[in-house]
Simulated assay, not measured.
Amino acid sequence: MPLVRIDIMEGRPPEKIRELHERVAALVAEILEAPIERVRTYITQFPPQAWGIGGVPADIARGDEVAARAAAAGRDDPA
């Protein structure tokens, strides 16, 4: 049973996550000639402040000032 694990930064809409599950599973099934029902996908989403890019949290490295301010204030949502 193939298992594919994908780590991504959060912030994508649910329909994109569903599409990622579907398309990755279909591709793995095709390449490995395995039944798609046997393919497992696991997607982990991390907040930008949990990613590091060159030693700097991604929310800062990307210039994501709103998320950076929310993280500095100890809030998860930037609103």
Score class of each variant (00 low, 15 high):
Ala79Tyr: 14
Arg18Tyr: 02
Arg38Gly: 02
Gln49Phe: 12
Ala61Gly: 05
Arg12Leu: 08
Ile6His: 03
Pro2Cys: 01
Phe46Thr: 12
Arg40Phe: 10
Gly74Phe: 06
Pro78Val: 01
Pro2Ser: 01
Glu19Met: 15
Pro57Arg: 00
Glu37Val: 04
Ala68Leu: 13
Gly63Val: 01
Gly63Arg: 00
Phe46Pro: 01
Ala58Lys: 02
Thr44Val: 13
Pro14Ile: 08
His21Thr: 12
Arg38Lys: 04
Ala79Asn: 13
Arg75Leu: 07
Ile43Phe: 07
Met9Thr: 11
Val39Pro: 06
Ile31Phe: 05
Leu3Glu: 00
Ala79Pro: 15
Pro35Arg: 01
Gly54Ile: 05
Lys16Arg: 14
Ala67Ser: 11
Ile60Phe: 03
Val39Glu: 03
Asp64Cys: 00
Arg62Gly: 04
Ile17Glu: 13
Ala79His: 15
Gly63His: 01
Met1Gln: 02
Ile6Val: 13
Leu27Tyr: 03
Arg62Tyr: 10
Ile53Pro: 08
Pro47Cys: 02
Val66Cys: 03
Trp51Val: 10
Glu10Phe: 00
Ala68Ile: 09
Gly54Glu: 07
Ile43His: 05
Pro78Trp: 00
Arg75Tyr: 06
Val56Cys: 05
Arg23Asp: 07
Ala73Val: 11
Glu65Thr: 10
Ala68Gln: 11
Ile53Ser: 14
Arg23Thr: 13
Glu33Met: 11
Met1Leu: 01
Arg5Ser: 11
Pro48Phe: 08
Ala72Glu: 15
Arg23His: 11
Glu65Pro: 02
Ile53Met: 14
Val4Tyr: 02
Val39Ser: 04
Asp64Asn: 10
Arg23Tyr: 04
Ala34Gln: 10
Glu33Val: 12
Arg62Leu: 12
Val39Arg: 02
Glu33Ile: 12
Gly54Ser: 08
Ala68Lys: 11
Thr44Ala: 15
Met1Pro: 03
Lys16Gly: 01
Leu20Gly: 03
Val24Asp: 04
Arg62Glu: 08
Arg5Ala: 04
Lys16Gln: 09
Gly63Asn: 00
Ala70Tyr: 13
Arg38Ala: 04
Ala67Tyr: 04
Asp7Ser: 10
Glu15Arg: 06
Gly74Glu: 09
Asp59Met: 04
Ala72Gly: 11
Ala50Lys: 15
Glu15Met: 06
Pro47Val: 02
Asp77His: 08
Thr44Trp: 10
Pro78Ser: 02
Arg38Val: 10
Lys16Asp: 07
Thr41Phe: 00
Arg23Leu: 09
Gln49Asn: 15
Arg40Gly: 13
Arg12Thr: 06
Val28Thr: 14
His21Asn: 13
Arg62Ala: 12
Phe46Gly: 09
Ala73Met: 13
Gln45Phe: 07
Leu32Glu: 05
Glu65Gly: 12
Arg23Met: 06
Trp51Pro: 13
Ile6Cys: 07
Pro78Cys: 00
Ile17Asn: 14
Gly11Pro: 05
Met9Val: 12
Thr44Ser: 14
Ala72Phe: 08
Ala70Asn: 14
Arg38Met: 01
Ala68Tyr: 09
Ala70Arg: 09
Ile31Gly: 06
Ala26Asp: 00
Glu22Asn: 15
Arg62Ser: 08
Met9Ile: 12
Ile43Gln: 08
Glu22Ile: 11
Ala70Ser: 15
Ala58Gly: 02
Ala34Ser: 08
Gly55Trp: 03
Arg75Gln: 12
Leu27Lys: 14
Val66Ala: 14
Glu15Ala: 07
Leu32Ile: 01
Ala29Trp: 06
Gln49Cys: 13
Ile31Cys: 05
